[in-house]
Design a binder for these strands. Structure first.
Lengths: 150, 150
DNA sequence: CTAGTTGCAAAGGATTTGCAACTGA
DNA sequence: TCAGTTGCAAATCCTTTGCAACTAG
């Protein structure tokens, strides 16, 4: 989904909740749509500050929470447990491989795994609303550490 | 694996790294083996304090990190993002369903999902060392929130 | 107008760290 | 003995919150 369309959806989302569209909220949504990478709260805060030096971290965190709630962004954890975000509206769900060497995050989607998750959940009469699958290891460019490096 | 066996392994692990077995480390390992539930750093700290009122949180955190490194414990995130631990040595790997209603954590294991993960990783020339699969939703005893409750 | 929003600064909560006193091997 | 360990308190890091001044609708 393009940024303009996402923005329209965000406006509807806010209207339905009797919340207001503000300059900061608009800027944060657009910045999130501008990157195809995963970003941290602090990174997007820096980008917001580039546009508006008076913006606060508080607003960034409040807006990120809204965007996650509305299904615009998804959050995930990087190798060190830090929260990262990515825009997902209009994108198909995917899972992540996190490289413990360089920190790079690879995305993948596997229909069979998705289907099996649904199956497992329903077997346990569990009403699944989301899931997170993270594979940790070393990407093609990074060697796993050897015994002696420990 | 029984507590006594785990303790022996912990001793070997420490010896190999030129670290020492201490009363606190022993107590923490045994307490971790005493529960079949997931526990937080603060919970095990409270249990340690029951035995030795002078023990410190710092030691608990340091020891938990050691136990995770040695493959004695695994860590996972609960519904609120808090880190929980569980003892895993000698237990087969499993994944988790986290109830957003009551916080309960259900365990499951699905061979097909495990196999597919391996397959996906190797397709991407990714050397997987561990993975975490978490399904979030509502367990059989908890109703999903309705629209109006939001 | 006025409920919702913001920036600020302070609070929060989990975890880590520096350090001097201890202790296991 | 002496490198490794501990408890303490302070420090960190990320995130949330109270509040008075703003602002969208």
């Amino acid at each position: 989904m393009r940024a303009a369309a996402a923005l329209k959806r965000f406006e509807s989302f806010l209207r339905e909740k009797n919340l207001r569209m503000t300059e900061q909220r608009k800027a944060i949504l657009l910045l999130a749509w501008d990157t195809h990478d995963h970003f941290s709260a602090d990174e997007i805060y820096a980008w917001v500050r580039d546009q508006d030096a008076s913006a606060s971290r508080a607003t960034v965190y409040r807006t990120l929470a809204l965007l996650v709630e509305g299904g615009f962004l998804a959050s995930l954890q990087d190798a060190r447990g830090m929260t990262l975000y990515e825009h997902i509206l209009g994108h198909s769900h995917h899972d992540h491989m996190v490289c413990l060497g360089c920190g790079k995050i690879l995305e993948f989607r596997n229909e069979a795994i998705e289907a099996l998750q649904e199956q497992v959940a329903s077997q346990h009469r569990f009403h699944m609303v989301r899931h997170e699958l993270r594979l940790e290891g070393y990407c093609a460019g990074c060697e796993p550490p050897t015994e002696t490096e420990v």
